[in-house]
Structure formats: structure tokens, C-alpha cells
């Protein structure tokens, strides 16, 4: 298990061990691979494709692809970044992301990715889908306008909370997150302290009465791009 090997990301040789995904090995080495559906501690999912890398010339999701000796991984190249930007833009036009009044603004991973990539406006037309909002629960609400279908709540509820509060229903563009009840969130066993609630990377699952507590200028992505914490490890190690 602890047997190590080396592989290459963007011309840098890094170490990995068997059982690690490319994303995990890279992260440990202080190389940030942008991601959205991935959350440490949850089963890798591979749905957002934001972590797409070219691995030995083929596109693969770094969050699900095991690292292997001698792999040549392209992470920060222009063509890979172009694909990722395109995917982030797709997610922006797919939902109704009104950042200007969203409680998660400044702390949102989708937004963070867009900032990191310097996206000023998406190249695709906004789809403005009709989505609903579930505010039935006393402490939590779901705004499906902002859901990116990453499945983090689904997995966290199942794997961390042992509750199965969330699941996917429908398919294709009609796919959506559903709660484990006839009608609404209030009927489920969800609690405000659930990992599933904290797992949402965007403003789709939010705690009530907690909005806008962090002032503008002090929020997670106000000054440093998403992934900076990981990249600092590399700098620190080099020094």
C-alpha cells in the first residue's frame, strides 16, 4: 500500500502510491488540479469533469483515475484549461446562478473556479431553466436554481451521515437532486449539522439565518484563487 512510484504532471516529477488517484497524489505533492464534484473523504464521483487531465494523451478525470508509475499527466496546459473553462461555463449557463445575491458568493467553489480561470462571461447562451426551491425545513433550504448535480450531498448523506437524505431522480437535462420523502426536505431526517449540508460546493443547500456573516473582502476566494492552499504546500516544501 505504501509502495511509492513516480509520475509526471506538467513536466514535474511527483510521487504517488498505489491506491491513490491522480488528483490525490497531485494534491499531496502540492499540485492543484481544479475540481468541483470531488470532496475529500467521499467516494470519487467523476461527474463534473472539471478535473479532466490529459493522461498519456487521453482525457481522463483525475478524481477517479488511479495514478500509475510513469504516467504523463497534462494539468495546466492550454488545451486542458480550455476544456475546464468550457465546463465551468456550461455549469453557469445550465442553472440560474444569480451570484449578486447568493449567500454563498465569495465562498462558492463554482464561482471560485470561474475566478481562477479568469472567466468574465460564459461563451454559451444562458438556458434559464425553471427550477424550484424547497424552504420547508426549519434550518435548511434547497435552491435548485444553483444545483450543479455534483452529488456531494447525495454521497455525504449516505457515506458520512448514514441517512440517504438526497438522491438523483430523472435523467439527462431533467436530472435533479431529490429528497428522500414524498414532498419536501422537512419530512426527511436531515439535520443542520449534517455533513451533507456542509458538502454543497455552491449555494444550493444552505443553512438558514447564517447569510452574509462574513464581510466582503474576508471571504474564502476574495483574495486568493481556489486551490491556493494546496499550491502553497508545494512552495512551502520547496523552501
Amino acid at each position: 500500500m505504501s509502495e511509492t512510484f513516480t509520475f509526471v504532471i506538467d513536466d514535474k516529477e511527483i510521487e504517488g502510491c498505489f491506491g491513490q488517484t491522480i488528483l490525490e497524489a497531485a494534491e499531496e505533492a502540492g499540485v492543484y488540479i481544479p475540481r468541483l464534484c470531488h470532496l475529500k473523504g467521499l467516494t470519487p464521483f467523476g461527474s463534473c469533469r472539471v478535473c479532466t487531465c490529459m493522461v498519456n494523451g487521453r482525457a481522463m478525470a483525475a478524481c477517479t483515475q488511479p495514478a500509475a508509475p510513469g504516467m504523463i499527466v497534462e494539468n495546466a496546459s492550454e488545451r486542458v484549461t480550455e476544456i475546464r473553462k468550457s465546463l465551468v461555463e456550461m455549469l453557469f449557463v445550465e442553472g440560474n446562478h444569480f451570484c449578486m445575491f447568493c449567500e454563498r458568493s465569495g465562498d462558492c467553489e463554482l464561482q471560485g473556479l470561474a475566478y481562477r480561470f479568469g472567466i468574465a462571461a460564459p461563451r454559451y447562451p444562458y438556458l434559464f431553466p425553471e427550477r424550484d426551491l424547497d424552504a420547508s425545513h426549519d434550518d435548511i433550504f434547497i435552491d435548485r436554481n444553483r444545483c450543479v448535480l455534483c452529488g456531494r450531498c447525495v454521497r455525504a448523506s449516505r457515506e458520512k451521515d448514514g441517512k440517504h437524505v438526497f438522491g438523483f431522480v430523472g435523467r439527462g437535462p431533467a436530472k435533479r437532486v431529490q429528497v428522500n420523502a414524498e414532498a419536501a426536505l422537512a419530512e426527511t431526517k436531515v439535520a443542520v449539522t449534517d455533513e451533507a449540508v456542509a458538502a454543497c460546493p455552491v449555494g444550493a443547500i444552505l443553512k438558514k439565518r447564517t447569510a452574509y456573516r462574513v464581510p466582503v473582502g474576508e471571504r474564502r476566494y476574495d483574495h486568493e484563487p481556489i486551490g491556493s492552499d494546496i499550491e502553497k504546500r508545494r512552495t512551502a516544501a520547496a523552501e
Binding site: N96, F98, C99, M100, A121, P122, Y126, F128
Partner: peptide
């Protein structure tokens, strides 16, 4: 130049789009 979210994504007025 588009300046501001309304020019860029419709903004608050675009909440009527659904």
C-alpha cells in the same frame, strides 16, 4: 464593454426569464 452582472448575465431583471 459590458459592465456589471445585468449586462453580462441579465441580473435581477432576468429573474423573470423562468
Amino acid at each position: 464593454i459590458s459592465f456589471g452582472d445585468c449586462a453580462i448575465m441579465g441580473g435581477i431583471p432576468a429573474m423573470r426569464n423562468t
